[in-house]
Amino acid sequence: MKTEILKIAAAHLKPFLLVLSLVVLYRGHNEPGGGFIAGLMAGMAYVIYAGAFGVNQAKQLLLAKPLFFMGLGITLAIFSGTIGLMNGADNFLTGVWTSISFGNYDLKLGTPLLFDLGVYFTVAGMLVKVIFSVMEEDA
């Protein structure tokens, strides 16, 4: 399976897919996209890489263990829910919004985005963890 074409493609696809996944994550609120899809894309970037270069090499590119990302994701999601509570809302997961201005452009940020980031990390971590494990089993 380790062909040169796949290797070159995977190496170039990985950064592209990662950046794209962030775009998809952010635009999800108003246009098609969102944390789940973006998480799958980010995970796939590493899976394709592992398919071309082997799991061990792909693992070295990860910033932290996949399990860490899963935990981080769930923590972020829960944390996003408590921000509303701290601002005096009655219910867990109440949305809070803010925006940062860059000249003419307003970057809108809200706890739902933070929540979606949590989904993103969890899904990506899960995908990488499971598929890498299956691949290691193969090897």
Binding site: H29, G34, G35, G95, P112, L113, V119
Partner: peptide, 9 residues
Amino acid sequence: NIVNVILVD
């Protein structure tokens, strides 16, 4: 994006 708003909010 209603689907996304349902999911995350």
